[in-house]
Amino acid sequence: MQGLKKMRMPLIFLLVALLFPLFTDNQYYIYVVTLAFIYAIAVYGMNLVGGYTGQLSLAHAGFFAIGAYALGLLTVDANVPYWLAFFLALVITTVIGTLVGLIALRTKEHFFAIYTLCVGYIIYLIIYEWDALTGGVRGLIGIESPAAIGPITFDTGISNYYLILVFLVLTVIFMKFLTESIVGRTYVAIRNSEELAQTIGINTMKQKLISFVISTFLAGLAGALYASFVRFIGPDISYTMMTFDFLMYAIVGGFGTLFGPVVGTLLIVILTQSLQFMEDFRMIIFGPLLVLLVIFYPRGIVGGYQMWKMKRAYKKKQRSVDQGSTYEGGD
């Protein structure tokens, strides 16, 4: 019962997400929310390595793009069956992620951030310049929708919505089990102090690498889903700005919290899409918001809510203890 109560909010959330397409005929709304789901999966990756493990990886959009381009190229150019291509896209992203991680993680803090920023830029430049493979600035068009699984087809907006929702829910469950376990505690210990983590017997390099690789896997997953959902990809999806967008979703929702990515991403994506004029100029508001958040409210929405609940629970407990003693005194 206790566990169910704790999960009440997320379950309501899930219910709303499941019913949402039934209450709107507007394909555009469904499209926007689906896109937000895809980004949220990528943000979960960033959140794991940045929010939990404390390593700010700024190559995230690069891995998102690798996933997307791998799927696009395999299906369009190489005619590989969709789900096999999907699987291979994940493998490719993860392998590249592992190689990058092995080298990048030898650097620390600022160096790591700069290093990954540059890796992201290299990925962008390669996609942009390697015309023969990637189509360069023209991008890749005509990527196919996900192939049918048995009787279930994914050629409509709604079916894609549910498919991607399933992936998002799986991602959240994965993250929940991971971060709430002793394995996840290891990551938090590294974020808190790498020095201390090492002296309590944690192989920090290995653990950082694992969390980095998972993060690139999630970025690749989101990228592959993006490619077949939007069906057109260009070099822009690998650009630094995309990484910064992901970062912003994570910070607003709550860096290092379980539900921060989904809350932050949905909120900002829906907000910017519904206020059309904000599309290009959203950073006028979100740039300063990012600054204000890290100064005054670094936990974001979800983190702030958790903190408030925790303090309240503690005060309640204190109060009942205090009351207990007054009653004793009264007797």
């Binding site: 994965f174 376990s181 002793i182 394995v183 996840g184 505690r185 017997g201 944690i202 694992i210």
Partner: peptide, 12 residues
């Protein structure tokens, strides 16, 4: 943690 062997697979 150093006395435990669980990995990501165990966690998930």
């Amino acid at each position: 943690r150093l006395r435990t062997k669980s990995n990501v697979f165990d966690a998930v």
